[in-house]
Design a protein around this nucleic acid. Sequence first.
DNA 1: ACCTGAACACCGTTCAAGT
DNA 2: ACCTGAACACCGTTCAAGT
Lengths: 186, 186
Amino acid sequence: MALTRQAVLDEAIRTLDAYGFADLSMRKLAAALEVQPSALYWHFANKQSLLAAVATGWLGAMPAPSSGATWDEQVRVWAHGLRRAVTAHRDGAELVASVLAMRAEGVDPTRGLVAILHQAGLRAPDARAAAATVLHFVMGHAVDEQGHAQMQAFGVAPAGAAPDDPDHRFEYGLALLVDGIRARLA
Amino acid sequence: MALTRQAVLDEAIRTLDAYGFADLSMRKLAAALEVQPSALYWHFANKQSLLAAVATGWLGAMPAPSSGATWDEQVRVWAHGLRRAVTAHRDGAELVASVLAMRAEGVDPTRGLVAILHQAGLRAPDARAAAATVLHFVMGHAVDEQGHAQMQAFGVAPAGAAPDDPDHRFEYGLALLVDGIRARLA
DNA sequence: ACCTGAACACCGTTCAAGT
DNA sequence: ACCTGAACACCGTTCAAGT
């Protein structure tokens, strides 16, 4: 069976789930596919574009904004959708964050949110700034949450007190952002 | 002259400024110090603890909260202080973000901010959640800003329209967060 | 068109041995 | 105490050559 672009992507996600982002290498991936490392470079220009393709797949599965709801409900749905999309796989948030950091062509989950905020009444530049703020919050939270889960899984629990519930922290931060946006609409 | 812990740290920052975070390796650093790579492991347990020490140095230089001001002004000063601290050197935000992600012992810039927010009237768990929200915003923005500056420096300008001013985006996001916190105090 | 084989230029880290 | 030398177990990527 010929090696397919999609087969590489699927195996990359399996390798990610099995070994984590730090240990997701082209060589490990090639070994899992029973192929030489160099074979991967026929299907992808380099590792970054492979990771970008993985991230694009996840982000493309985000739910479209439901135009029937109020702007604040739409913002909440968008934020939860992004969080779900990037935390569905081990170290997914870290992978997506790394892809966003290198600004891969056309990988911008923010577009839908900008439209929502503009529709709500924010000027275009303000809508972009507010959307970036929400994006940074969701990604930062997701990376933090997954990294923390990873520590516990390896039994490296930090010495301090019991940490706060991630779900509660997420809801609190999101509510705070929504209130901040509301203040700028009035 | 004997190799000193501080000398290693200083040279690490110089190497960072010269080559960027991705190309900051223990071997390059050793070469710059005219020493074998293994010599560094006498002074630091591993690369992560060296990076943690660099980040700790930067974060330790953040201005202490000025207790004479209103809470919102203190939050603004804290956010600007963190942004300055992590963007002072090339890829500084990325380095600090990576250190925060691995939860190095005692590297938590959030302590001062939590105190400010608790003093302002937020319950302790809410103060921690709000502080984390501000932290994620500042770090996300700083990583984004420095990554973008890097692209331009290498002449890889993206095709789209002219990007918004980072300073404006930062001020807007910060004002939004402050308003959101205010809404939860009332 | 699609993949192998072999190489190039790197990594972080360990550890015996030297001084 | 502090560093060298040499090794171990890896990386991403390129490229001629095979089929």
